[in-house]
Simulated assay, not measured.
Amino acid sequence: MGHGLAHVKSVRENTPPSAEDAESTPSPVKGKGRKKEQDAKKAEAPPPEAPSSEEEWAYEVAHADSSTDLAPIVGRNLRRLRTQRGLSLERLAKASGVSRAMLGQIELGQSAPTINVIWKIARALGIPFSALISTTAQSGTRLMRASQSKRLASHDGSFSSRALFPFDEPRRVEFYELRLAAHAEEHADAHPPGTMENLVVTVGTVEIDRGDEHHVLAAGDAILFEADVAHVYRNTGNVDAVMYLVMTYAETVG
């Protein structure tokens, strides 16, 4: 599964070069006068608009450890939920902070977003995280084998999330297994008002910053906090940390 994203292109690869990119390509110039004229134009030219680096694009695209079969599911759900709310890609990009190009690639199922990108979109749409990863509802007992689990990861793979509930429908309570690499940290944006996180550490030591609050959790420690402000998970230890998280929303949003 680690190489499953080989066929999924980055937004940079799927986006044709802009006029600005084309103009920035150097071309042979004859004569000193021509060179001085070009130097003057470069000095007057405004700085390029973000995203302006490969790192910014890479941040939006998930690590290869993410489940590639989630990409089309997220894409279909995003398009349906966005159109239901009458939002253009441009308006959703402004509301979520996710680039318009990336949103378009997600809807086409051609780019797998990171955990953080999905959270940004879900918050902008006012929906639970699970609304973007849900599949068709099924009834009865559901057995979820670890070998068949679907994982979402950060862009560098240092943080991963495995849903421990069926991807069948949006729900008010969600249950996740989280893994954070040694000496890594994950920044989480504020979730919708009323969202609660109940987290227990089972392996390693994890620091959690919530606003001005700072908490250190060893294996076996648990914490419950309001997640409607930005927060950080940090692993300062030498081993990967494992956590289990119960996310509770104020209300279920379909």
Rank of each mutant, 00 (worst) to 15 (best):
Ala181Cys: 08
Gly237Cys: 04
Met144Asp: 02
Leu152Pro: 00
Ala112Asn: 09
Ala112Tyr: 03
Gln84Gly: 11
Val232Leu: 15
Val74Gly: 02
Glu90Gly: 13
Gly211Trp: 08
Gln105Thr: 13
Lys36Arg: 13
Glu44Cys: 06
Ser134Trp: 15
Gly211Val: 13
Arg76Ile: 09
Asn235Trp: 00
Ser96Tyr: 05
Gly109Pro: 09
Ile115Asn: 01
Ala58Pro: 02
Leu178Tyr: 05
Asn14Gly: 12
Asp189Arg: 07
Arg123Val: 15
His155Ser: 11
Tyr244Gln: 05
Ala71Pro: 03
Phe175Gly: 07
Glu186Cys: 11
Asn14Ile: 07
Ser67Gln: 04
Asn77Thr: 11
Gly4Phe: 10
Leu224Phe: 15
Lys42Met: 10
Pro47Ser: 12
Pro170Phe: 07
Leu199Val: 13
Pro46Met: 05
His215Leu: 13
Ile208Phe: 00
Gly33Lys: 11
Asp21Leu: 12
Gly211Cys: 09
Val253Lys: 15
His231Pro: 01
Asn116Phe: 13
Gln148Val: 08
Glu177Ile: 12
Gln148Pro: 01
Met196Phe: 14
Pro166Phe: 13
Pro17Cys: 09
Gly126Gln: 02
Tyr244Asn: 03
Gln110Phe: 15
Gln110Trp: 14
His187Ser: 08
Asn198Lys: 15
Glu90Gln: 14
Leu103His: 04
Ala71Trp: 06
Glu207Asp: 07
Pro17Ala: 11
Thr25His: 13
Glu207Tyr: 15
His214Arg: 09
Gly33Leu: 13
Gly204Cys: 02
Val11Ile: 14
Thr248Ile: 05
Thr195Tyr: 01
Val200Cys: 05
Ser96Trp: 03
Thr236Trp: 05
Leu5Phe: 05
Tyr59Asp: 02
Leu217Phe: 08
Ile208Trp: 00
Ser160Gln: 10
Glu213Val: 06
Arg85Tyr: 05
Phe165Leu: 03
Gly75Gln: 04
Met102Gln: 00
Ser154His: 03
Ala163Val: 11
Leu245Met: 13
Gly157His: 01
Ala22Asp: 02
Ala64Trp: 15
Glu44Val: 06
Met247Ser: 02
Gln148Met: 09
Leu81Asp: 00
Val229Asp: 03
Val98Lys: 01
Val8Trp: 13
Arg145Val: 07
Val74Leu: 11
Ser99Lys: 04
Glu55Ser: 09
Ala95Val: 14
Arg162Lys: 10
Val206Gly: 02
Lys42Asn: 05
Glu185Ile: 06
Leu70Gln: 02
Val117Ile: 10
Ala71Ile: 03
Gly4His: 10
Ala184Ser: 08
Glu226Tyr: 14
Ala101Arg: 02
Ser18Gly: 08
Val232Gln: 06
Glu207Arg: 10
Pro113Glu: 06
Phe175Ala: 10
Thr135Gly: 15
Ile115Val: 12
Ala6Leu: 10
Val201Gly: 05
Ala62Gly: 04
Leu87Tyr: 13
